[in-house]
Each structure stands twice: as C-alpha cells, then as structure tokens.
Design a protein around this nucleic acid. Structure first.
Lengths: 158, 158
DNA sequence: ACGTATAGTTGAAAATGTCAACGATTGAAG
DNA sequence: CTTCAATCGTTGACATTTTCAACTATACGT
C-alpha cells in the first residue's frame, strides 16, 4: 500500500465513527468542535506567545468595559486564581495593567496597554484566519446563524 | 442591600461583559457553551460514576461499530494513552470488554457488555435531561438547526 | 526475511483545575 | 463608631489532565 493510500484509509476510518449515536448529542458536537478549534487557535496564537486563555483576557482588557478580575473569572468560567496567573503574565509583558477599582478598592480593573492593543490587533487577524479554516464547510450565512444560536443559548439573545 | 438584591446585581454584572467584542468570536462562544455544558453533563453523570469522557467511550463501545482504541482516540481527539486509562476503568467495572482486532491483532476492539448497555441507557436519559437545561433558551427547531450546523462544520454533512 | 510503521501500554513531566486559607477592604447592623 | 460577616485578589497545596517518549507485539511492503 502506498503512503497516500494509507492516509486515505486513515481518514476513512476516522470518519467511520461518525455514524455512532453519540454524534447526535449536541454537547458532544460542541466538545469536539471546540477541541478542533482550540488546537487551531492555539497554533495561530503561538507566534504571539498567547494562548486561548490569555487571548480572551487580553480581549476583555481591551474592550473598554474595564472588567475586574472577578468579572473575568465569572465570564470565562475560570477560577479567580487562574485569572491571577494569566494577568500576572500579561502584566509582566506590559500588555495589560492593573488598577484599583474606583468604588471598590479590593477589586482590580484590568486594562490593555497600547502595546497590548497593538499585539491584540495582530493576533485577532490570525485568529480570524484560523477560524475561517475550522468553519470552512460553512458559508458566511451559516456561520452567522451558528453564532446567533450559540449566543442565544448562552444569554437568551434575540 | 438585601441578599437577593446582591444576587441580582451579581447576575447583572456577570452579563455586563456580554457586550465585549470577543463574544462575536465563534470559537469563544463554542468554548464557553462547552464549559457550561461540561459542568452540567458531569453533574448528571456523577450518579453513574461516569464523566463526559467515559460516557463517550461507553457510547462508542455500545454503538455496534466495533471501534478500536486508536479509532476512539482519533475520534475523541484524545491521546491513545488516555483511552487506555478510560477503557481500563470501564473494563474493571465490567461495562466494556476488550477483544483483539479481527484482521489486526495489535488493535483492541472495545464493546459494551450488557451491563454497560444497561447503565448507558440510564445515563443517556440523565444526559438528555441535563442538556435540555443547557439549551433551554432554544426551542426544538433551533436545537436541531444548531446540531445540523455543528455536524456540517465537523464533517461537511449535507 | 528484513526493515519500517503502527496499536496499545507504561511512566514521567508539564500544564491545568480545584480548593482552602489569608490580608485588605467593604457594607450592614447595632 | 465599632463590630461582624462577606467579598476581592492572592498564595500555596493538592488532584486531575495533557503531553510525550519509550517499549513490546504485530503488521506489511520490499
């Protein structure tokens, strides 16, 4: 058997299990597509020394919404201590800055520095390119509908 | 401030970040909804001493497709060694059995025992109930469309 | 028959997740 | 004003998960 033929067979075998009942399970599909997307995203972010997590934090810091670490933890479904680590790292790289909360001095508001915003702009392009790859099988309209459905499931968007 | 009012404010604050640009990112939405679903699914599976992972393996073992461990690893995007651990555990509980591959004796075909199938039937009901909770904001039609879109993104389904 | 590649297994190392404590600060109650 | 419980960020311990490099047994092209 040639190498190419082996590869083809491997691909065929891989898709053999698509018929399993579990593939009708929405949660499973979510998990699998997320797994695929994660790998692709992290690969795209590697050149900026970011990962999905730090990218998300940087995005929130650059959003203008002045999130506290606690808010980020809630929003990203992460433990507060994980946010500490992520922000520490970004802060060390001068991509974000911590400031005490205005009404609540216990809280720490995280904002992106201009350096952080610049890096983010680059990274966002890379992520978008990577994502286009993952969702290549969907046309623009379908991707939009998928986004809308996910948002509605999460927050009941109209 | 009353306790209820605090809870309300907490919820409001939590949703404050929904306006952040990252929530337009399909990959992010996928990750977040998966995170939510994972917690709910694992909670539902706890009473059967299963987790998402072992549940998936059990589902595949019970599918009648006679998957090898390698095929499961590829399909679930897991390292082969993780499959070993998962199958070891299920095998110890007599929920699945390993058999040598018919053409390839290196391979191990994993099939569910009748005890495994019984447990799975119960667990599947619990998962379905849990999932309904996660996707409560979507009606049946929308859930169906979401499933279809995810399948198409993954395998180019029609 | 030989050499290369693959399936499963093992174990070690790195990354992540979970949890409980602590100081600083807040806000409510007396 | 003082007290008291609750919350934010932080730290460190511990468990779980991921990742990777060997190793054995088997398969297969040449």
């Amino acid at each position: 058997m040639t190498l190419e033929a082996q590869d083809e067979q491997r691909a065929a075998v891989k898709d053999r299990l698509v018929g399993a009942p579990i593939t009708q399970n929405v949660g499973f599909l979510l998990a699998k597509l997320h797994a695929v997307g994660s790998i692709v995203n992290n690969r795209a972010l590697a050149e900026f020394h970011l990962k999905e997590r730090s990218y998300s934090v940087l995005m929130l810091a650059a959003s203008g919404l002045e999130p506290t670490q606690r808010e980020m933890a809630d929003f990203l479904s992460l433990d507060p201590s994980q946010i500490v680590t992520l922000v520490d790292e970004l802060e060390k790289r001068k991509l974000v800055a911590r400031a005490p909360g205005k009404q609540d001095r216990r809280a720490r508001i995280v904002t992106a520095t201009s350096k952080g915003k610049e890096l983010l702009a680059q990274a966002a392009i890379a992520v978008q390119r990577a994502e286009a790859d993952v969702f290549a099988a969907l046309d623009q309209d379908e991707t939009g509908r998928l986004t809308a459905l996910l948002r509605k499931a999460l927050w009941g968007d109209a």
